[in-house]
């Protein structure tokens, strides 16, 4: 390698490093600024409700990196994921036949429009009144709230299957389960993913409030207990944990979506001509 090349490589490396640093500054700049502001506000105002980020961080490890993680956090998350998965299966399972049959769809539409419009959190007091909210009922709350966006989006997606692709399947004798897998579900997948995304945030809402309302354990319960007993830093740490849960679940979802819909992004980009 000549000196010249070495110099070039060094230059590229340092340019890459500079670009990396700029990207890091862009990414972390504003969050750092906001945290600093928060810190300053907490310290200078001396407000009882406003805890500074340092204390929250310390409390966070103290409160959640303990057996509480096993007793309160994991069961909640398990419940959330179970309910969400059941809702997804149910929503897609019912949505596909509804999407494929015009008659069924026409018959079910008004009822579905109504059921979808019911704000899911009202199910919490209802089920509480009827059977009390044990873990399985909390799962039922999550399922019954999450199923609608999945169901309705699946119906829309299945309905919009491209007629040329459908003809192609008929010509080549593709039917039954292979048709379902290769044509119906795949072409509806962008819509189904949109429905699953909406369902995810509803699932979190339902998990938290069903625990706040009626439970003696779980993440939502713990946070409300801290608030009631005016354990402010602990409450803040709970809020942070709920926030992190939302962020992590949404990141995992975004990853799965990117993977499942890679073809869709490519197709869109190609049809826009870039």
């Amino acid at each position: 390698m000549s000196a010249n090349e070495t110099a070039n490589t060094t230059a590229t490396v340092s340019a890459t490093a500079r670009r990396g640093a700029a990207a890091a500054a862009r990414m972390l700049g504003l969050p750092a600024l906001l945290i600093a502001l928060w810190w300053w506000a907490a310290v200078s105002s001396g407000s009882f409700f406003l805890t500074d980020p340092g204390t929250i961080a310390a409390t966070f490890t103290e409160v959640w990196v303990s057996e509480r993680f096993l007793t309160d956090v994991l069961p909640s998350v398990g419940l959330l994921l179970t309910g969400y998965a059941l809702a997804a299966v149910l929503g897609i399972g019912v949505g596909v036949p509804l999407g494929m049959s015009t008659r069924l769809r026409a018959a079910a539409e008004p009822v579905l429009e109504f059921l979808r419009a019911v704000p899911p959190p009202v199910l919490v007091p209802l089920l509480m009144l009827l059977v009390g909210l044990d873990a399985s009922m909390r799962t039922a709350v999550i399922v019954s709230g999450c199923v609608w966006p999945v169901l309705l989006n699946t119906v829309e997606g299945v309905r919009a299957v491209d007629p040329v692709l459908a003809d192609t399947c008929r010509v080549y004798g593709i039917r039954g389960r292979r048709r379902l897998g290769v044509l119906v579900l795949r072409s509806a997948s962008p819509q189904i993913m949109a429905g699953l995304r909406q369902a995810l945030s509803i699932a979190i809402i339902l998990m938290v409030i069903s625990e706040m309302f009626a439970s003696s354990s779980g993440l939502g319960y713990a946070v409300v207990q801290f608030q009631r007993s005016f354990a402010i830093p602990e409450m803040w740490s709970g809020i942070v944990l709920l926030g992190l849960l939302g962020v992590v679940l949404s990141a995992v979802f975004a990853r799965a979506e990117r993977h499942a819909l890679a073809w869709h992004r490519g197709l869109r980009a190609a049809s826009r001509g870039d």
């Binding site: 504003l30 709920l242 926030g243």
Partner: peptide
């Protein structure tokens, strides 16, 4: 570009997490 990361972080935070704060 400067706000993207903050938005990506704040957006998925479930608003029900704010309930205790709102009550207080």
């Amino acid at each position: 570009a400067a706000t993207a990361s903050t938005v990506e972080f704040l957006r998925p935070i479930p608003s029900v997490a704010l309930i205790p704060l709102a009550i207080l």
